[in-house]
Design a protein around this nucleic acid. Sequence first.
RNA 1: GCCCGGGUAGUGUAGCGGCCUAUCAUGGAGCCCUGUCGAGGCUCCGACUCGGGUUCAAAUCCCGACUCGGGCGCCA
Length: 420
Amino acid sequence: MKLTRSSAIVPETDVTVAGWVHELRDLGGISFLLLRDRDGIMQITMPKKKVPPELVEHVRSLSRESVVRVAGLVKEELKAPQGFEIIPYEVELLNAAESPLPLDVTGKVRADLDTRLDARFMDVRLPATRAIFLIRATVLHEVRAFLSAHDFIEIQTPKMVATATEGGTQLFPISYFDREAFLNQSPQLYKQIMMAAGLERVFEVGPIFRAEEHDTRKHLNEVTSIDIEASFLDDNEVMELLEELIQHVYIAVAERCSAPLQSLGVTLSIPHIPFKRIAYAEAIEIADIPWGDDLDTAAERAVGQEMGEHYFIVDWPVELKPFYVQPRNNLCYAFDLMHPRMELASGARRIHDYALLVEQLASKSLAPENFGFYLDAFRFGMPPHAGWGLGAERLLVTMLGLANIRESVLFPRDRRRITP
RNA sequence: GCCCGGGUAGUGUAGCGGCCUAUCAUGGAGCCCUGUCGAGGCUCCGACUCGGGUUCAAAUCCCGACUCGGGCGCCA
């Protein structure tokens, strides 16, 4: 079917368009059909004098959200919302929508998030919801473009694994033929192995799974992680890369997503780089918590309020970070990228020395024999390296000011929800 | 997992012992209307989560289940 999209309509031409019946307004002598496609809403106008009565009656009988194809003539018209309207000579019903609808697609009555997620196919028809996913696609596209331009190659690592990768978090057990296996919590070990493989700079955009019981507006049990690992770079160099990436993505979204941003009512302010760096020691002082404690929700909020914009927390105590982070006395070369609302990313310079790595595993009470395939990579020429993992959903949530992380995922997986 | 607060037409809500034959908006069915753009006007349709209990009387109070939201914990 050769169709013209609503964003590409040219006045004084014959077009065939298709979409969903958004609204019908019958004023008696003139009636309007608002037809919605992915790009927007176009007005089909039917003055009694210009359109045959059978056609008007046919359109009047359409149910909302039915799918139709319309052929007609585009007229420039200042009274029309888009500056043009289509006078139809043919309207074909492709598939009727049942009634009542599970939620209101015109946005006059805003449904609860739970209702929206149950009828996600309908919810995404709302321009304001669809905007989130148009922007999400742009964000991930720009992440790939930026990293590719910086010489990173995209890899895919397994999501089904035999053992926990770093401890700390709970894993989802799965049945793997006659064995137990797990859904992977992070590509960490695999992307590090690729440093030993000589790929030098790799990234992965993929799902990670956390079986934590957390039940909040900023946690999900399945999220998309943007992970990088780079040989011969240190923690400071990958931090610079990270802040440049964040800024690049903001600029690209501001430039290329003006319509979606508008339907969300969001004005992006581009973050300034370099982001501020504060030491863990300063952060706990602001938050008034003791040395050795991780930042809880209140602490995150207190420090976020003080900083006001994106910032890095550096110089963490070694005991608060995973075993693969390069220690420096009782501190380590790890960093967290924070937004005033929440943590966005964490990363570090990694240990590349085999003996030190085994020692650190032991100090975290992890059994080296469970990490054989990983440790082997450190025995035959592992370059020094560093990397980070960035939460794609959290990036979107903080960028767009979304109230709930569930809004940033088409089909979120949380403590209670596994359908649709 | 803990602590609060909810579950009323398809959707979003009001009502919080008798005045409820349950409010309003949106929606659906229909009628009027030639420029709507959250169109407008009129008529009609459609609901108290489930199970126990208290009471002369329960949408309303109590208990339980299920379920949703917010906060916290844990985590990224």
